[in-house]
Write a protein that binds this DNA or RNA. Structure first.
Lengths: 221, 221
DNA sequence: ATTGAATTGATAATAATATATCGAATAATG
DNA sequence: CATTATTCGATATATTATTATCAATTCAAT
């Protein structure tokens, strides 16, 4: 069929799903069992119509005057994201960011279980960070295939990013959550999700400078 | 005029600017002084036409057959983002993520200088993390106004997020880079940029599940 | 039962973003 | 100096995302 890279649409919606999930779980823990698009919109800082559009994707329909059943939504969103069942992952690069991710408890609640970490620094080897054991990268190939791990988190220094990636690909990795600034080369079929911490800062910077400008305009008027 | 929240468009472009900047600086350090949209596109994994559209925003125009002057681009992007001059920031919440951000060297190269950190944990007070001194949150009001700090990074536990925000707002903060999952309430004029680590994971999860599906289809055909 | 208030969801309109096309400009080449 | 290959950038188009409108539905109250 298509020789293009597989794209998904509704990407902004998918990005918002974790935030919905969080809110829904809070409601749920409070014993509340329905919620309206308006309530969610208020808490998310978006329009209610957008919430309804987003929730359309889950296949759950609400009831007029009442809203949506929270338990249904949670189940449906989790299943849509594949978070209903836990996925094992390896983390590569136990630096500061890597360690932070190892200790990030929400990942576990999102169906992601980091079962081992890898580094080359002898100070870190065979130690445990946030409950996760650190192995030498040389051990990765064997463990990848033995434990059939399909997802890797990449927090290595940029100069090693491609090299580690090649190793991962050779051992059957399916997805890479890439926190390095490197655009990784991977064969078709391997999914890379790149994160750039600076892009958020860029947006903040621009919005702040515009806020100042608009303030000046108001003063002038 | 408008009673709506200030919006910026070209947001996807703004998000890509830091990545361009990184590449341009690499080229620059290699003594290369021009680059074509095609080269940048290749490295970014996007279409060259999109690169040209993005660079339009900087106001720099290229020359046919040659491309763009790297030094001009760097200067222009940095100035567009307000990264040419350094901005002082405070960080609140010296947990694992907070510590990671304190040690994130690229922030310094992006015009962001974290000059102090704040926490309430007595184990952390008056110590130095990644070269940044940690003070008790109670000291924040005085230091905020004395040092005229306009930007704060929020990595506190969610239950304290709004409370710390209120304190920041009371002391004249202009922007908050919010790493907590809380939708902060702030008065008009204060810019909040919210980050959600899970949204990237959500995208990865969905793309991976689709990749598997498309593989199945290919097998079937 | 009937009415009223609130909320959904189908459809449509608008806005934002990405991609395609192609003439014009430019430097390198012969 | 003319030719050629390359790249930009103006314009047009396609795609995607958000917002608006409003009839239909449902529960609650009378």
């Amino acid at each position: 069929m298509g020789d293009k890279i597989l794209k998904i649409d509704k990407l902004p919606t998918v990005r918002r799903l974790p935030a919905y999930l969080r809110l829904l779980k809070v409601f749920s823990s409070q014993g509340i069992d329905t919620v309206s698009s308006g309530q969610l919109a208020e808490l998310m800082g978006i329009e209610s119509i957008l919430v309804r559009k987003d929730l359309e994707l889950t296949g759950i329909s609400g009831t007029p005057r009442i809203g949506f059943r929270i338990s249904d939504l949670i189940r449906s969103i989790e299943s849509f994201l594949g978070w209903a069942t836990s996925t094992d992952a390896f983390l590569f690069g136990v630096g500061q960011l890597g360690t932070a991710l190892l200790g990030y408890r929400e990942l576990g609640q999102s169906g992601l279980k980091i079962i081992a970490a890898f580094d080359t620094d002898s100070d870190k080897l065979n130690r445990t960070f946030n409950g996760v054991r650190v192995f030498h990268v040389d051990k990765a190939p064997e463990l990848l295939s033995r434990l059939n791990v399909q997802l890797a988190i990449l927090t290595v220094p940029p100069e090693h990013a491609q090299q580690v990636t090649d190793l991962l690909v050779m051992n059957g990795i399916q997805g890479i959550w890439n926190y390095t600034p490197v655009s990784l080369e991977v064969p078709e079929g391997v999914t890379v999700q790149k994160e750039d911490l600076l892009s958020g800062l860029a947006v903040l910077s621009v919005r702040m400078s515009r806020a100042v400008v608009s303030q000046r305009c108001e003063e002038g008027s």
